[in-house]
């Protein structure tokens, strides 16, 4: 029996007899389809909602009932439960051109694992290639993190960090008014076109952080 299970049962016994507490708990689990050994986000509140229904049916004493619900809310409110499947994150430090290939290869493998189609695998790998090449060309060094988004909307997130000079004319680049002689403008616009979300933070002394996401559906 998990720690959480013991505590939830204890909380139910505040308002219900032992046998009814067990029934209510079992029913709550089957209704909410929650596994107390593997709680994901949202599971706690789902289970809580179902348990509350049971408590309202069986608890006779309103004061005990409220106390029971309060205790359960404490136990099960979102965030209290540990995440079932932590987002998987890969970090690649990008210092030279060969790291570009490493980074995009890792991104592509992760995409394949997540079930992205061939065309999206290539798109994501291309975006990573753009971001990594940006780092090598303009900042010299930096790093790329590739995260599998497993909770909520599934997908992949790529973040490129560098402490380079920053990109002063970002707005112009993204509005396609500017083209660098080395192709950066096209690269960033192209990356934005390939991905579902594109977010950039840059400044003269802060370096550059570009975060992009592609969702599975």
């Amino acid at each position: 029996m998990s720690q959480l299970e013991t505590e939830v049962l204890g909380a139910l016994r505040v308002a219900l007899s032992d046998i009814i507490a067990k029934s209510v708990y079992q029913l709550g689990l089957s209704w909410s389809k929650v596994d107390t050994h593997r709680m994901g986000p949202g599971d706690g509140s789902r289970l809580l909602a179902e348990l509350e229904k049971g408590i309202r049916i069986y608890a006779r004493d309103p004061a005990k009932r409220d106390a029971c619900v309060r205790r359960l809310t404490e136990l099960l409110k979102d965030g209290a439960a540990p995440r079932a499947e932590p987002d998987r994150r890969l970090v690649v430090s990008v210092d030279e051109e060969s790291d570009i290939v490493t980074a995009r290869g890792m991104g592509r493998d992760l995409c394949r694992e997540l079930g992205f189609s061939m065309s999206v695998q290539v798109k994501v790998a291309t975006a990573i290639s753009e971001l990594a090449r940006n780092i090598v060309q303009y900042a010299g060094r930096g790093r790329i993190t590739i995260t599998a988004l497993l909770n909520g909307r599934r997908g992949i997130e790529i973040t490129a960090y560098d402490e380079g000079p920053g990109i002063p004319n970002m707005d112009e680049i993204l509005n396609r008014k500017y083209r660098s002689t080395r192709g950066m403008g096209m690269g960033l616009v192209g990356t934005r076109n390939l991905m579902d979300e594109f977010e950039v933070r840059t400044g003269p002394r802060e370096g550059t952080v570009i975060r992009v996401r592609k969702y599975l559906s």
């Binding site: 290539v122 290639s129 090449r133 060309q137 950066m184």
Partner: peptide
């Protein structure tokens, strides 16, 4: 070539 970014295409 399995991945072609703007640098290579350029």
């Amino acid at each position: 070539i399995d991945v072609m970014d703007s640098f290579i295409s350029r």
